Simulated assay, not measured.
Amino acid sequence: MKPAESQQILAEQRKLRPVSPHLAIYRMQINYFNSPFNRITGSVLSGAFYCFGAAYLVSPLFGWHLDTATIVAAFGSMPVAAKVAAKFAMAFPFTFHGINGVGHLFWDTGRGFARKQIVSRGWTILGLSVVSAVYLAVWV
Rank of each mutant, 00 (worst) to 15 (best):
T95M: 12
V84T: 07
I125M: 01
L128A: 08
S20N: 05
W139C: 10
A114H: 05
V72I: 10
V138E: 06
I9C: 05
Q8R: 04
N100K: 14
V130Q: 04
P21G: 06
A137E: 14
W64H: 04
N31R: 00
V102M: 15
P60L: 13
L126A: 09
F94M: 10
T68Q: 12
T41Q: 04
T68V: 09
A81Y: 08
I71H: 07
G122Y: 07
A137Q: 07
D108Q: 15
V102I: 15
M28D: 01
V44L: 15
G127H: 04
A69H: 14
I125V: 15
F33H: 10
V131W: 02
V140R: 12
F49K: 13
F88Q: 07
Y135W: 14
L16P: 00
P60E: 10
A89P: 06
M1Q: 00
A4M: 03
M78P: 13
A89W: 09
F96V: 09
H22C: 05
F75T: 07
H22Q: 09
A86M: 10
A86K: 05
K83E: 05
G110K: 13
H104R: 14
S35F: 08
R27T: 13
F75A: 05
Q13I: 07
C51I: 09
P79A: 01
F33R: 13
A86F: 12
G101V: 14
F62R: 10
A85Q: 03
A48M: 08
N100Y: 07
F49C: 09
P18F: 14
V19G: 02
E5M: 01
I25W: 02
A133N: 11
Y50G: 13
L126G: 03
K2Q: 02
I71D: 03
Y56V: 01
R121N: 13
K15S: 04
H22F: 06
T70A: 11
V138K: 04
G127V: 08
R14V: 04
M28F: 01
V80N: 01
P93K: 03
P79F: 11
L61G: 15
V119A: 15
E5A: 02
I99T: 09
I25P: 00
I71P: 01
A11V: 00
H104M: 13
N100S: 14
A81D: 11
S20P: 01
S77K: 12
V58E: 11
P21F: 06
L10C: 00
S43I: 00
M78S: 04
T95G: 03
F113G: 06
M90W: 11
L16Q: 05
V119F: 14
G42E: 00
D108W: 12
A91Y: 02
Y32N: 05
A91K: 03
D108F: 14
M28T: 04
T124K: 07
A48C: 12
V44I: 15
R14K: 12
V119H: 15
A133W: 05
G101M: 10
L128E: 07
R17D: 06
G103Y: 09
S35K: 00
L126N: 06
K83C: 11
H97T: 10
T124G: 08
S6M: 07
R121C: 03
S20M: 04
N38H: 13
S77G: 14
